[in-house]
Design a protein around this nucleic acid. Sequence first.
RNA 1: GGAGAGUUGACCGAGCGGCCGAAGGUGACAGUCUUGAAAACUGUUGAGGCGUAACCCGCCUCCGCGGGUUCGAAUCCCGCACUCUCCGCCA
Length: 423
Amino acid sequence: MIDLKLLRNDPDTVRASQVSRGEDPAVVDHVLAADAEHRASLASFEAKRAEQKSLGKSVAQAKGEEKQAVLAQAKALAGEVKELQASADAAAARAVELARSLGNIPEQGVPSGGEENFTVLRHEGTPRDFAAEGVDVQDHLAIGEGLKAIDMERGAKVSGSRFYFLSGIGARLELAILNAAMAAAQDAGFSPMITPTLVRPETMAGTGFLGNHADEIYYLEKDDLYLVGTSEVALAGYHSDEILDLEGGPLRYAGWSTCYRREAGSTGRDTRGIIRVHQFQKIEMFSYVTAADAAAEHARFLATEEAMLQALELPYRVIDTAAGDLGQSAARKFDCEAWLPSQERWMEVTSTSNCTTYQARRLGIRERGEHGTEAVATVNGTIGTTRWIVALLENHQQADGSVYVPPLLRPYLGGLEVLEPVR
RNA sequence: GGAGAGUUGACCGAGCGGCCGAAGGUGACAGUCUUGAAAACUGUUGAGGCGUAACCCGCCUCCGCGGGUUCGAAUCCCGCACUCUCCGCCA
């Protein structure tokens, strides 16, 4: 949630934010009106309530007839107070609901517009010239099937479309990626966490995923639990309603979890292979950081992700996501996109968001500051996921269907330097 | 699945329907003492909100969460969540 004080003092900034996100700036005025209404009704409730309390105290002292009179008066007051409270509560609920619909305010420099309006910050590495090498490019599924690493057919048989089995070297490769990512995160100061993948409604709502993303989320009605689409959910909930001590620097966690996504709006998109699936694994970095240091922490996340992609010898570009594609909580988002030779396009492999205080305010995560408690900032980012198998197989494929293993992963694959096809 | 006990501030822990935002203790912080430290002593020390843009100050809310009873609820009643113990079941 956005800071209501900021909204009152500087509504123009919030209006501009709405415009850059491609959303309605008039919502700002609706929020302001609802907020004013709330405060007015709150004031009249509080005044009446104070009156009731002081009268209530005199009941105990009063005697005889006088007591009867006071009691009657108090009874009448109680009814009024109850009504005023109800309308104040209702006004508060309206104001909060409206305020919550406002997305975070994009950082300076974020391009405005929608999904296609991103800025490319830089390219790292060079895509191979497969033609020159005499390699007939195969897509990750063809390579994966050659290695007997990926089995989509049986995945569909057992669980339906967008499910798969990773078998043999495929399973080992995923574990290698995740373990290497976990180790890299740990080296960067992140504390390893294996998180719950089912969370309660409060947790899911608190992280802001029940807004725009609601359709993306699996829900278990019988148990009133949600399946997480990323361990960010659990890691953000981890310190909810707490006052943190960030004197010693940010609290950094690396969460390992399976992630579940319904992919409701993406029928027909990335249908082949494991690029877009209902279930995958991911190592997610997550930091709780003093608001003033959030941008620096965000840069650190990006650097850590890039170091990982470089160690895996993957050519990639970094994009600065446009305001309309940030999602509710982020103020800035950098994606790293690896080259996908079979489709000659870029494919998202990491995404790091600076949510500033937006997520933490909603979750009640604070620290002690100069003027009492202040909301902390949260930053999240990918450091390894199942999808990386796609990038690795395609970029490191050889003419004979084997796949080169970058040195970083070898210790996690028993020293293997090349993945050989299975005949 | 059955039976029972519990949830109070950073932590432990007391709490009669009104004088309870809450005793006492621990911790933390500040001061006195000390060459310095420890000990001792003294004081301070919850969160959210409104009035105000900020201070002072005033007021309101918060004793797991949500309802109810009552003039008045941490205290009584109901529902829910969570924790613990015992029994059963499964491994």
